[in-house]
Amino acid sequence: MVYRVVFALFIISKAGGLIYNREFHAGLSKLEANDYLIVAGTFHGIHAITKQLCPAAAAPTPPAITTPSLAPSPFPSRPSGLEVLETQNFRMQCFQTQTGVKFLLFTEPHQPNVDTMMRRIYELYADYVMKNPFYTVEMPIRCEKFDRGLDGFVKVRS
């Protein structure tokens, strides 16, 4: 069994607010609640800038999209923005959903299979958060089943 360490999971709403913050293993510095909000907000801005800096032309745009339309394009070919951030002590994978919610997963620097883990977390989010009738979008996530699902998933794996 490969030893895996997942440090933490952040979920950032499309407005840049931190709506979920969970630590699984110690490894990242402990911050105050306000600082986490600041980090999330900063990252939201960074993500937008990394999209703009794209030095190469993004994948060719289908001609239909170039005509003005009010509906959001279903085939986005715009730059993806930051996906993986590597530092000496951790690796951060960012996954942005079609609706602009960002999942940040902090792991060990050489963690394999973060993509599959991310997909599974997204499934849990869809099942236990989005399908929860008492959850208001853009609000902090307080769903016990989501917490337990994550616990089971991450602990079984690590």
């Binding site: 600082d35 900063t42 000496q88």
Partner: peptide, 20 residues
């Protein structure tokens, strides 16, 4: 951000997007 989360001795190495 890297220093805040990873500790004082941490340093940012690189990042990757879908394009660069």
């Amino acid at each position: 951000m890297a220093q805040k989360l990873g500790g004082e001795d941490d340093s940012f190495l690189c990042y990757r997007t879908g394009e660069y």
